[in-house]
Amino acid sequence: MSSHHFVKEQQEPAVLILDADQIRFEQLSPLLEWVPTVLVSEYALDRVLSWGIKIDVILASVSFQATNQQLLEEQYPVKFIAAEGELYLEAGLEFLLATDHKAAHLIGISHISAFDLGTKLDLITITLLDGDWKYYPVKSGEFKKWFPDSTIHIHGKEGMPLQVQNDNGELILPITYATMLEVPEGITSIKAPGIFWIGEQVYS
């Protein structure tokens, strides 16, 4: 048994990679520091393997599994999880819930798909990495955080009113498709009557 698998007790957020085309290894590297469970879809597999990352679960069609049995030995003790019709996200989240994971970083999913996660957000803490941006949900309707002088993206139901308060004053505005907000250095608080997502540019 490798040390990689010995330390796992589902404490660290899992890493679920659906598509690796828009991600660089240096963006992933900090997420792997504490040896999380790593799930990869068949489409992202070649790129992820080229980075030398140890994979725990491959989400793949039955036909892919049949023609790539050697991966079970090369990546031992990796396991295949069947995902037909490109339902990799659904299969990956179901696996994480079944194995009692509390949190996951999703990579290669557009923030526009955030609302497809639905009731899963009640069961597992999710962060999305979409290109150079990191998105996390605000489920309580109220959010407060210190930001550097920067621009954040607020993603939510079209037309939902937001109340924003920081050193620039107080602002009430409806969410639109791309609500970009300039925030000054310091605490910004945001309130809304429903769930919304905050996006921060974490890489440049």
Rank of each mutant, 00 (worst) to 15 (best):
Q10T: 05
Q11W: 08
P13M: 01
L16Y: 08
L16K: 11
L16Q: 09
I17K: 07
I17L: 00
D19E: 08
A20Y: 02
D21S: 13
Q22W: 04
Q22V: 00
I23H: 02
R24T: 07
E26F: 05
E26R: 07
L28M: 08
L31D: 01
L32N: 02
W34T: 05
V35C: 01
V35W: 00
V35S: 07
V35A: 06
T37F: 03
T37W: 03
T37D: 00
T37M: 06
V38F: 01
V40H: 04
S41R: 04
Y43C: 03
Y43P: 04
Y43E: 02
L45N: 01
D46W: 00
D46G: 00
R47I: 01
V48N: 04
S50Q: 05
W51Q: 06
G52R: 02
G52Y: 02
G52T: 00
G52K: 02
I53K: 04
K54E: 12
K54D: 09
I55V: 14
I55D: 07
D56W: 09
V57A: 07
L59F: 09
L59V: 10
L59G: 11
L59Q: 07
S61V: 10
F64V: 11
A66G: 11
A66F: 09
Q69E: 14
L71Q: 13
L72D: 10
E74C: 09
E74F: 14
E74N: 15
Q75P: 10
Y76N: 15
Y76F: 15
Y76C: 13
P77K: 14
V78A: 13
V78M: 15
A82I: 15
A83K: 14
E86N: 15
A91P: 12
G92C: 11
L93F: 11
L93I: 15
F95P: 11
H101G: 09
K102N: 12
A104F: 03
H105V: 06
I107A: 08
I107W: 06
G108N: 07
S110W: 09
S110V: 07
S113N: 13
S113R: 13
F115P: 03
D116G: 04
L117N: 02
G118Y: 01
T119W: 00
K120S: 10
K120Q: 06
L121C: 06
L121A: 06
T125A: 10
T125R: 10
I126R: 05
I126E: 03
L129V: 02
D130L: 05
G131R: 08
D132Y: 05
W133D: 06
W133E: 08
W133C: 07
K134I: 12
